[in-house]
Design a protein around this nucleic acid. Structure first.
Lengths: 145, 145
DNA sequence: AAAATATAGTTGCAATTGCATATACAATCC
DNA sequence: GGATTGTATATGCAATTGCAACTATATTTT
């Protein structure tokens, strides 16, 4: 609760948010200029692509990508309207539905990834060594615990 | 341009964004339950409080907190309507204006900070040692270069 | 110095997000 | 097993954000 707030922690806090904002803005800009949808579409499609054919529940996607459930619900509306995902009801729990990615969704993912990847390369991957990224990742994981 | 995208860099990329989203969500939630405005209000007021009495230009604030100019313009509308900041025209450059923080703005900042600080303490400051935060900060600064 | 270009900020409108509440089903309690 | 509480998702509405175009002034070019 009342751990000390050092100068170092404060500085890291500020830089963390600056880094995120700047990097995200650059990726979004690149996607936009390539006529691709916002990054969060990719995030959802990616999570869906990682699982077997019976897909994911909305709340499972929400936990992975950290989005309010009502916003996810409407994001899925948009994705479904464009046929990138499909909702279907499963007997398992009739309150909700399961979401699966369609082949069009996979195709879109494959369109987005090379652009996204280049943006990560250009803005991020060259800035630190492998060991430094490994350290950075370790720190961030500790923070998320 | 085409630096290699290692597993380590990719992992760090993902964790960076997860960490940001989670931490920001927690801070915003805490602010809200304390009937305080969103964090970006604090960001603006803080930047204004760091400078002398003649304030900042909009584009200067924008550079610091990384916000589109049109969104900043309207954020300042809201802040000005509540008398937390004031716009005034300076002879220096008649295209724009300068923004200063009011005493009410300073008061609001001082209300937000203890809550914000507690949230940083609780969700962030205890997770790493001083040296680790220092390293983390160093890495993040390298990324921002 | 007039014309062309760039910069600072604003505004209308559409899309998205946040907030509160609603609906529908599940799980638990008595 | 009926009532209560909890969970999963959806929806109406207001606030915010993103996008494109616009106004006004500065700067640069010729």
């Amino acid at each position: 609760m009342s751990s000390i707030l050092t100068k170092e922690a404060t500085q890291a806090w500020i830089q963390l948010h600056r880094a995120h904002r700047l990097l995200l803005a650059r990726v979004e800009e690149t996607l936009k200029t390539n006529n691709l949808p916002p990054l969060v579409w990719y995030d959802v499609l990616f999570e869906l692509s990682q699982v077997k054919e019976d897909g994911l529940r909305q709340y499972e996607i929400g936990e992975k990508i950290l989005l309010y459930k009502h916003n996810l619900s409407r994001l899925l509306d948009r994705l479904e309207k464009k046929h990138f995902v499909k909702r279907y009801t499963s007997a398992e729990d009739a309150r909700g539905n399961r979401i699966i990615i369609t082949s069009a969704g996979i195709k879109l993912m494959n369109q987005i990834w090379p652009i996204y990847r280049d943006s990560i390369r250009e803005n991020f991957a060259g800035k630190l060594s492998v060991n430094e990224f490994s350290e950075l990742n370790k720190f961030l994981c500790s923070i998320l615990e």
